[in-house]
Design a protein around this nucleic acid. Structure first.
Lengths: 250, 250
DNA sequence: CGTTCTCTTGACCAGCATCAAAATTTGTGG
DNA sequence: CCACAAATTTTGATGCTGGTCAAGAGAACG
């Protein structure tokens, strides 16, 4: 499952480049709320870390010592049951914040999907900064609100939609979450593999694969590569995602 | 489904009793963060409304003109698919805040389960108050974090647990969410009916009913009434909820 | 006390999981 | 660049969990 065990050393430290001022993810992150002149404050605390694909960032139950911002790449967060069943609760991309729900310990595990870089803050610094810069707290609250709304959509997908509708929902929603790499219009990049999609949608790999095949047969999508989808009929795909369609093949 | 259509007039207006100072839900709500001397500020904006069972508070897509605090009773929030499939995304009790994820319009519908009273703030007042009393914003952010963590648990329930485990999870988690009415230890009060539980757990009424029967047959619970559960074996119930058990009947 | 709603139980069925294997892609070393 | 090995994806056959349809048992209400 892990592409690279747990071995390669973590490449962490101060940024070589200009820091927060020219962070590509800033416009999409909570840091966008910090004015240019206050950016030094952030820079002083931020620490950039680079993760290879498959690297575990932290695990459910670990003491929550840091919060993170995704700068580039993609991260998945998930929960495990005792017997290994896994629920991926989110895919995170550039600009996303990690650590919102955490109290003393993390409530989920986090792992890099592909080579990624993140910005890390010590929990104490983070709290102090929040107490000082209230625009940050507002930005975080707004983000939390959006995530809560998204979580309710996810519950509806997991609780009430059929396999085909789940995959359609996923393909419709995914592009909006990866602001740095929108790709060509109508194309959806899939950095995660089928197993991860399955664990995100509450299905098995086989069912996800069969659902991809069905979407192709219905002419709604085309697979340009195993990790690149061309959406052929956005309207019909969206209808499927919203539960407004489910007729047999013509 | 609706116990009382939409007819009886909404009983809204200033509180007859003392206001925020002696609000029974305050210790459990974000208002707990407001100091006693600042309470007048809250009082000036708050409007108490009483809802009969089944009354719809707002519907998904309605312009978000208010936020609410539940004072007593219970409320469900839910989303509907085009063909009527319903996902109940939360049951709310005294102290719970409604309106966190809302932007311009509500992302879910909200409806009273039983006769309930709520505290209502105009969206503008709410924003103004938040800008002024930052401890409120912090309290809200903390609450949002807890809700986000709960949402991830819900996703795991909906995506990866079997019917019996879902019901066990529900019975284990429910008491903690209703602070004003903890009931006797080991007892769980169920203000909502089987259909609502089903729509909360992503199941059908029949499956929920069969799962109750199974929990009884296994000796994990006893039904004192249709809406009152006696937990007989908390440990085994919790094990089931966490996916650490699923053996056939002895 | 009958009417109506809710809950429970039973019989049957379908969607998705499971088990198994083939096809395709990715990675590695010559 | 090619050949081989390993991993991922797809496809197929079969079975089980939970959904659907139907009817009976309890509660709630007038």
């Amino acid at each position: 499952m892990l592409k690279f065990g747990g071995s390669p050393p973590e490449c962490a430290g101060r940024r070589a480049s200009g820091g927060c001022a020219d962070c590509p993810a800033r416009p999409f992150s909570i840091c966008a709320s910090v004015s240019d002149e206050d950016l030094g404050r952030l820079d002083a605390m931020a620490e950039t870390i680079a993760l290879p694909a498959g690297r575990i960032l932290f695990q459910e139950g670990d003491p929550a010592r840091h919060v993170f911002n995704v700068v580039s790449g993609s991260v998945r967060i998930y929960k495990l049951l005792a017997d290994g069943r896994r629920q991926v609760t989110g895919f995170l991309f550039a600009g996303d914040f990690i650590g919102l729900g955490a109290g003393d310990s993390y409530g989920v595990s986090a792992e890099a999907i592909e080579a990624s870089s993140l910005c890390r803050f010590r929990m104490g610094d983070y709290r102090a900064l929040m107490a000082e810069r209230r625009e940050l707290e507002s930005a975080l609250l707004e983000r939390a609100g959006r995530e809560l709304a998204a979580a309710q959509d996810r519950m509806t997908v997991l609780g009430r939609k059929r396999a085909l509708e789940r995959l359609a929902s996923f393909l419709v929603a995914l592009p909006a979450s990866d602001p740095l790499r929108p790709g060509l219009p109508g194309q959806v990049r899939l950095p995660m593999n089928r197993t991860e999609i399955a664990d995100y949608l509450g299905l098995t790999v086989e069912t996800v694969s069969r659902s991809f095949t069905q979407l192709k047969q219905r002419g709604l999508i085309r697979l340009l590569a195993v990790d690149l989808v061309q959406v052929e009929q956005p309207g019909r795909l969206r209808a499927l995602a919203e539960g407004r369609a489910l007729a047999p093949l013509p």
